[in-house]
Write a protein that binds this DNA or RNA. Structure first.
Lengths: 145, 145
DNA sequence: TATTGTTATACTCTATAACTATA
DNA sequence: TATAGTTATAGAGTATAACAATA
């Protein structure tokens, strides 16, 4: 019964969180189209960190989609000069993805736009913002004790 | 400078929140495919509440997409017997969308799967869960004071 | 034999523009 | 003229299956 009580507050929190997320959908879409990128392209670009090339299959895993999709997504990013395919060193079947200088710049701009807290969070008082941060850190297992 | 401090905690909270949301993506996709629905179809079905028919244009607004997309999405839901188009009472140009009994049942099942808090939230202690709920309620303007 | 990435195919989502039937 | 919904079209994402090169 302690369990039922516990899940009630978590349940309500999840419903509110869902609402926050839904509210961000249009913002994300707007930012993506600002940069003339499809949402999947944004996700791919965010996933490839400068300085640490990734096999295509790893990108597929991160994006939870089939390898065959990645071919097209990377084709389009490569056509725009944002990422590049490089042959793998050991296994000649794999192709490593890396961000070009242009890609890095766009990535920076994207991050600048996406990392800004949306209205609901920005409107929180300092005390609430800190408490929220700490609770989320615990939820994600970033224990600071 | 109080502002810079304030946005720092909100900023960190937003980064953590983004992480929570990303973690839910595959869950959402999995649940959608469990019911043989595309993500946009899930969103449409969730948006049409039983007992309160909606014009197609209103669905387009809710889903942040063009009217023309809604035609196809509703076509497929209607072909599966989940929603129905009904002529508008006053303005004969509009078509009202309503959920069929089958649609209501599927909606119920969907909600049952989607409304369950995901791992990070479910793992929170009761005190954190309540605090999280209250902070999110304030963030969304659900003031209880 | 198994795996990485590609290609071919088919379906869904998306926006734009042109169209219809109403208003 | 303007609006609600459709159709036509084109581009992008998605999964499946078949394939080439490599392991």
């Amino acid at each position: 019964m302690a369990d039922a009580q516990a899940s009630s507050a978590a349940h309500e929190a999840w419903e509110l969180l869902t609402e926050v997320m839904m509210g961000q959908r249009s913002r994300m879409l707007a930012i993506a189209s600002e940069f003339d990128l499809a949402p999947a392209q944004v996700m791919a670009l965010k996933s490839i960190e400068p300085g640490s090339p990734k096999p295509m299959s790893e990108l597929a895993t991160l994006m939870r989609c089939d390898n065959s999709n990645i071919t097209g997504i990377v084709d389009r990013l490569e056509a725009r000069g944002l990422v590049a395919r490089r042959p793998g060193d050991r296994d000649r079947r794999v192709k490593m993805l890396e961000v070009t200088p242009e890609g890095e710049e766009l990535r920076r701009q994207l991050h600048g736009r996406l990392s800004r807290p949306p209205e609901p969070l920005a409107s929180l008082g300092e005390e609430d913002a800190r408490a929220l941060r700490d609770i989320l850190a615990r939820a994600l297992g970033r224990n600071d004790d």
